[in-house]
């Protein structure tokens, strides 16, 4: 099974919301769609879900045009929505019926998700009597109730407290374990790093970075050096050609060009009889990669305008 998004574009009048977006989910796992606000993530998701007409391109599932209704694609929208004056159990049952589930399956699935989401006390409550977090749980349950093979989660963890956040994370992990194909849009980079294998960063409707997250990170190399020691490390760092990017009481951070600089710094500090309390050489975080690419794209656009 695979999902292929091939060169999809969308314009609203003169405004290009999405330009030639392509990506592929060849294997089960979580694919991240990242981007600044208005970058085109929601447009891409709506096109994949068939809610918006695309100007060009195609969305293929197992080689054929994706029919989200037939495939029962599970969708957790960014802007949550439930019927405010309707009982939760009635809403879940309704959404399950719309997915074409049978009565016995619905009863079983509804019971399971009430249990799993720890919502049993709220079965007969109306949506407007629930907290935001509990409403979000109901919606995730609605997205998963038909056990879809393809899932689209738009900001699944936003606004959740740590306890509910952990429930959501464990459910996402369960879905990964069940070999589901998941597209996730999220602004919380650590969440993406926790779950996603491949990413696309969108900016102004265009993909500015795409690929396997680990490969991307590797391609940068281990360029972040953080050091904490007893003495003043800055003169030694200067000898090695390193400028600190951040100095805190805890540690000093450097951006290195090659790992040899880090090794030199360590050797010189040892030679100077300094006690090294902490020495960390790591790849850039997704947050850093994201900011770098967005900034680079903005600068390029500015230059082009000049």
């Amino acid at each position: 099974m695979s999902l292929t998004v091939n060169n999809i574009s969308k314009k609203y009048g003169d405004f290009t919301a999405l330009r030639g977006l392509s990506f592929e989910l060849k294997e089960p796992g979580v694919y991240a769609l990242l981007g600044t606000n208005g970058a085109g993530k929601s447009t891409a998701i709506r096109i994949i879900l068939g809610m918006l007409a695309k100007d060009s391109g195609e969305v293929l599932y197992n080689g054929a045009e994706l029919d989200p209704i037939k495939e029962k694609v599970g969708y957790l929208a960014e802007e949550r929505g439930l019927y405010p004056k309707c009982k939760i159990v009635d809403q879940l049952t309704y959404f399950a019926e719309l997915r074409g589930m049978k009565k016995t399956e619905i009863t079983k699935a509804v019971d399971y998700w009430f249990d799993r989401m720890e919502l049993n006390d709220y079965r007969d409550k109306r949506a407007n009597q629930l907290s935001k977090g509990n409403q979000q749980k109901v919606q995730l349950a609605a997205a998963l109730i038909a056990d879809p093979q393809l899932l689209i989660l738009d900001e699944p963890l936003s606004g959740l407290d740590p306890v509910n956040s952990d429930i959501f994370k464990s459910i996402i992990n369960e879905q990964i374990a069940k070999n589901k194909y998941i597209i996730m849009s999220c602004h919380q980079m650590p969440v993406i790093e926790e779950f996603c294998s491949d990413i696309t960063i969108l900016h102004h409707g265009e993909a500015v970075l795409q690929g396997d997250l680990n490969e991307i990170k590797k391609s940068y190399g281990r360029v972040n050096l953080a050091v904490k020691c007893d003495g003043d490390i800055l003169p030694i760092a200067a000898e090695c050609g390193l400028e600190p990017t951040e100095i805190t009481p805890e540690l000093v951070r450097f951006k290195i060009k090659e790992e040899e600089q880090a090794k030199q710094l360590l050797k010189k500090a040892a030679a100077a009889d300094m006690t090294i309390v902490r020495y960390e050489l790591r790849e850039p975080s997704l947050h850093e990669i994201f900011v770098e690419h967005i900034t680079r794209a903005d600068n390029a656009a500015k230059e082009a305008r000049l």
Binding site: L49, M51, I69, V73, G74, Y75, A77, G81, F95, L98
Partner: peptide, 17 residues
């Protein structure tokens, strides 16, 4: 309007036309 403004419609449209 309620379905649209409460965004329930987005969930409905993944299940029906």
């Amino acid at each position: 309007a309620l379905e649209k403004t409460s965004k329930v419609i987005e969930l409905l449209l993944t299940s029906t036309k």
